[in-house]
C-alpha cells in the first residue's frame, strides 16, 4: 500500500525532475542520514554521498525528496553524461 501511495503522488514531480540523477558533493555531506531516512524506496543515499557517486539506481523515483531534505545542500540533480550525449 505504501508503495502504491508513493507512485500515486510520484508522477508529477517525476515529470519535472526526471531530467537528471541525484549527484552528491561529498565535501558538503556530514553523513547525518536525513536523505536515506526520507527516501521512499530505501536507497542509501548517504552511502552514495560518502563515496561521491551519483545515485544510479533502477528504483530511484527521482522524486527529489533527498535533495529537498538535505540540510547541507549536498545533493543536486545533475544531467548525466549519458543523458547529454543522448540529447546532442
Amino acid at each position: 500500500m505504501a508503495i502504491l501511495g508513493i507512485f500515486q503522488r510520484g508522477p508529477i514531480k517525476h515529470a519535472v525532475l526526471s531530467s537528471g540523477q541525484v549527484t552528491p558533493d561529498p565535501a558538503r555531506c556530514v553523513q547525518c542520514g536525513i536523505c536515506t531516512y526520507n527516501c521512499p524506496v530505501d536507497i542509501d543515499v548517504r552511502a552514495h554521498a560518502w563515496r561521491g557517486e551519483p545515485v544510479i539506481h533502477s528504483h530511484c523515483l527521482t522524486c527529489g525528496e533527498c535533495v529537498a531534505r538535505c540540510p547541507r545542500g549536498a545533493l543536486r540533480f545533475e544531467k548525466t553524461d549519458l543523458f547529454t550525449r543522448r540529447e546532442s
Binding site: 556530514v30 553523513q31 547525518c32 542520514g33 536525513i34 531516512y37
Partner: peptide, 17 residues
Amino acid sequence: GLAYYLTGELHDKTLYP
C-alpha cells in the same frame, strides 16, 4: 547530525552511517 536528532528530524538510529 546530533542537531537534527534534537529537533526530531531524524531518529537516533539514523545517525550511524
